[in-house]
Amino acid sequence: MQEHQHYPSISVVIPTLNEAQNLYHILPKMPAIVSEVILVDGHSTDDTIIVAKQLLPTIHILQQQEKGKGDAMRTGFSACTSDIIVMLDADGSANPAEIVRFVEALMAGFDFAKGSRFIKGGGSRDITLLRKMGNYMLCQFANLLFRQRFSDLCYGYNAFWRHCLEQVDIDCDGFEIESQLCLRMHKAHYKIIEVPSLEHVRIHGQSNLHTFRDGWRVLKTIVRERRTKLIGTPHSSLLHTQGQHSTPFVEEASIR
């Protein structure tokens, strides 16, 4: 990867579990602004690692010791050396070209750029009605408890400055990592912006997401995070962006 002079250094973390066929649709499309790609493999039994090395010889591959997306992401985060960390799924549902949009949102002064399928410019060709309803209810519940107006709590396309991990610790193991990361960024009073993202259909294989089991884990995460103390000053903000323009979404929301 070539580092562009006008962009900070960027690390992309990709968790994989038998995603060999999908990597052909992900790695060749990685934007040139990306400095390093870290693939965390969760005990794949196909040619995921071989394909990854063929497609991107500079890729940094880590073997996950435990199980779960949250554990894989923690492993990847600890290995990142760049200024910005981007979370990217390997199933083909996320378009790597959108990385530029996330990075530019951070460069505009925000700490955490949160992908959203449910604001103008975003969308999903993959989510089922059941999952959409579950995400909506979980999101509304979190908004009620945290006095926020998040539009999409359970989406894995996110980016943030690496220094945020000095205040935000991730200790979950499963798909609830997206919710935990978002809520802990909010509790640490980092500036959050929602970025529109289009989710595509998984190209090959079956998703490891289990609607009811993982939904229950997200619900427990929301309740647990509300019970723990806030960090820093009692102010945080959430905005959303549409392309190159940012508009206020929630102004100086405070939690008591």
Rank of each mutant, 00 (worst) to 15 (best):
R213M: 10
I222T: 00
G174E: 08
D171C: 14
L219C: 05
V218S: 05
C154K: 11
R217S: 07
V195K: 04
I177H: 08
H163M: 13
V195P: 01
L209A: 00
L144R: 15
L153Y: 03
S207L: 02
R149I: 11
E166C: 06
S179I: 02
D173F: 12
H204Y: 09
S207D: 05
G215I: 02
F212T: 14
E194W: 00
Y157H: 09
C139N: 09
Q167Y: 10
C154A: 15
R224E: 02
Q206R: 12
F146Q: 00
A188S: 05
T211C: 10
R213G: 12
F150L: 12
N158H: 11
Q140I: 14
L153C: 00
M137Q: 13
K187D: 04
L209S: 09
N208R: 12
M133R: 15
V223F: 10
Q167I: 05
C182K: 10
N143M: 00
R131D: 13
L165M: 09
T221E: 02
V218M: 06
E166H: 06
H163G: 11
L153S: 01
I192A: 02
Y190C: 04
V168M: 02
F160I: 02
V223K: 12
H210M: 00
R224L: 02
Y190F: 14
M137D: 10
Q180D: 06
R213T: 11
Q180S: 08
R217L: 11
N135W: 03
E199P: 07
R184G: 01
R184D: 04
Y190I: 11
G134L: 13
L153R: 01
L145Q: 04
D169Q: 14
K132E: 14
Q180R: 11
I203M: 07
G205N: 01
D173C: 14
I222P: 04
L153V: 07
L209H: 09
H189G: 14
I203K: 11
R217W: 07
S179M: 05
I203C: 09
K187G: 05
V223M: 10
C154E: 11
R202D: 04
N208E: 13
Q206K: 09
K132A: 13
T221H: 03
Q148F: 07
M133D: 14
V195W: 00
P196Q: 08
Y157I: 02
A142F: 00
